[in-house]
Design a protein around this nucleic acid. Structure first.
Length: 493
RNA sequence: GUCCCCUUCGUCUAGUGGCCUAGGACACCGGGUUUUCAUCCCGGCAACAGGGGUUCGAAACCCCUAGGGGACGCCA
């Protein structure tokens, strides 16, 4: 029996997501329970969206949670490099094999043609997918286009009949007809591999024995299995975990819930409590005990105890559990130390002090002026937003537009934030002073406070988002219909 | 629209054919402890989606229906 090796393969294209931590947790537990290894690989093949900052944030969030990896960036093993952008040569060698043995082909279709095709298929209520146009190209045609350096992708061939049957560790046999599977692009026109290709090649080369991933991958598993066959490799075991959900049961998303691990850190949750909470999403200790540490989960782990209904991420229960950890696990001395490290992190204090210093007359003024920097949620009501020039719906709109602008920013820098806010105020045809008013209330709970721009930067996007959301809710919320209209207006702003 | 997956209290779940008048936890409601509040303790509320089978026996196995979710990108 080969060694058990599992992996988590995050894509550094955004905030570190609790779903990533969730899947990482189960992979780590499974590997360690079997005396195996847990690998971390960065899937940064999307050159447009991948950023170094996101990668750093993801790595540090996983570390914060205690989800360290046995092999990966910063912990090199024999199977590196662990960043897909550094493995280009490997992919080009491997795609050549598929081209040579006829299981992949070059496709010169333009994206315009493909869009048109998809539109037509949708209209005909057919399964959308590539129609095999370039498969009909003669070898000569293909070569001349290639020689002319015409932009193209490489796709995999798919059997035209029958079905793919595979065994999921939790669900048993799953079968999907090949007619449902698209001729997946393997290499993009920029030369980078797609997820599907890089993932299979890397999992094989890194000797991953069990692929434990989210349920959203079930439908593409046939493509992956077929790729293993094309290469003549043995496929790993597959296990699809249920997806974490919003309270409305849709897939957990930041539009509806705080999903960033950074948010939970900024809100003062204990990493061990958050991790414990994730461990009880779809899983229970054989003993039924609800409070357990990572080491206990690993020692008692049994993948067959995973239940398949998608669990709703319920902050109330997390709050209870976190409180339990604080009460039962922290001595007064530890509490002091950890609270101080959280609230008075030197880099944070260094940013806050200059703002407070110029406004206080006594140290005793500091707490009331600066408390919003460490508060969780603020006590505000609709009357907090009463203003001579701005009514509730206008305030909600200002808040929503500001949030969208801030979210689009790659980095929340002081100057960038100021620029965005100034521009928005001008578009609203409001004096900056009036425009900023709802933001002051939403972020600090008061109409008068330290610079809102600096405050946004210090609070960070996660807390800023949560407060703006809460404020909009307090102001009566935005209905789905309104949101649609606002989004349209925002785009044309 | 097509395909795939899923379905036990409001929520997280236990349950692998008899131990189930379905257990625990969160939330909620009551009571006790506490100078208040919280903690803590005690109690209460509350679910097998529906319909057919299989079986001596079904929450568990099979089928159908319904509901929910996901996938259908040169994103992962």
């Amino acid at each position: 029996m080969n060694k058990v090796r599992t992996r988590i393969a995050p894509s550094p294209t955004g905030d570190p997501h609790v779903g990533t931590a969730y899947i990482a947790l189960f992979n780590r537990c499974f590997a360690h329970q079997h005396g195996g290894e847990f690998v971390l690989r960065i899937e940064d093949t999307d050159q447009q969206r991948s950023t170094d900052k996101s990668e750093q944030d993801i790595l540090s969030s996983l570390k914060w949670l205690g989800l360290s990896w046995d092999e990966g960036p910063g912990c090199e093993g024999d199977a590196g490099p662990y960043r897909q952008s550094e493995r280009s040569e490997i992919y080009s060698n491997h795609i050549q094999q598929l081209l040579d043995n006829g299981s992949a082909f070059r496709c010169f279709c333009t994206s315009e043609r493909l869009d048109e095709l998809r539109k037509q298929q949708m209209q005909d209520k057919a399964q959308p997918g590539y129609d095999g146009h370039c498969l009909k190209l003669s070898q000569q045609q293909c070569e001349s286009k290639y020689a002319a350096a015409q932009s193209h992708v490489i796709r995999m061939k798919i059997p035209d009949s029958g079905e793919c049957e595979f065994t999921d560790m939790l669900r048993g046999k799953v079968s999907i007809a090949w007619s449902q599977v698209d001729m997946q692009v393997l290499i993009k026109s920029d030369g980078m591999p797609t997820y599907h290709f890089a993932n299979v090649v890397d999992d094989h080369l890194m000797e991953i024995s069990h692929v434990i991933r989210g349920e959203e991958w079930i439908n593409s598993t046939p493509k992956h299995i077929l790729l293993y066959q094309y290469f003549g490799w043995q496929a790993p075991e597959f296990c699809h975990m249920p997806l974490l959900r919003n309270p409305d049961k849709s897939k957990l998303s930041k539009r509806k819930n705080p999903t960033s691990i950074g948010y939970y850190e900024a809100m003062g949750y204990l990493p061990e409590a958050l991790l414990n909470y994730l461990g009880m999403m779809g899983w229970t200790m054989p003993s039924g005990e609800e409070k357990f540490f990572l080491s206990e989960m690993e020692a008692n782990f049994d993948i067959s105890r995973v239940s398949l209904g998608g669990p709703i991420f319920d902050i109330e229960k997390l709050d209870w559990l976190n409180g339990k950890y604080i009460r039962e696990e922290l001595t007064d001395a530890e509490f002091t130390k950890r609270f101080a490290a959280w609230a008075f992190a030197p880099e944070k204090v260094a940013q806050i002090v200059p703002l407070l210093k110029q406004r206080v007359e006594r140290f005793s003024d500091v707490a009331s002026l600066g408390s919003f920097f460490i508060d969780g949620s603020l006590e505000i009501s609709e009357t907090s937003f009463a203003h001579k020039a701005i009514d509730s719906s206008q305030a909600a709109k200002i808040l929503q537009f500001t949030l969208w602008k801030l979210e689009a920013l790659e980095e929340l820098g002081r100057d960038a934030v100021e620029e965005e806010l100034q521009a928005l105020a001008a578009k609203f045809e409001l004096k900056i002073k009036d425009f900023l008013f709802p933001l002051f209330v939403a972020l600090s709970g008061k109409a008068v406070s330290t610079s809102v721009i600096e405050s946004i930067v210090i609070l960070g996007i996660d807390i800023t988002r949560a407060r703006i959301r809460q404020a909009i809710l307090v102001l009566g919320g935005i209905s789905k219909k309104q949101a649609k209209a606002l989004e349209k207006e925002f785009r044309n702003f």
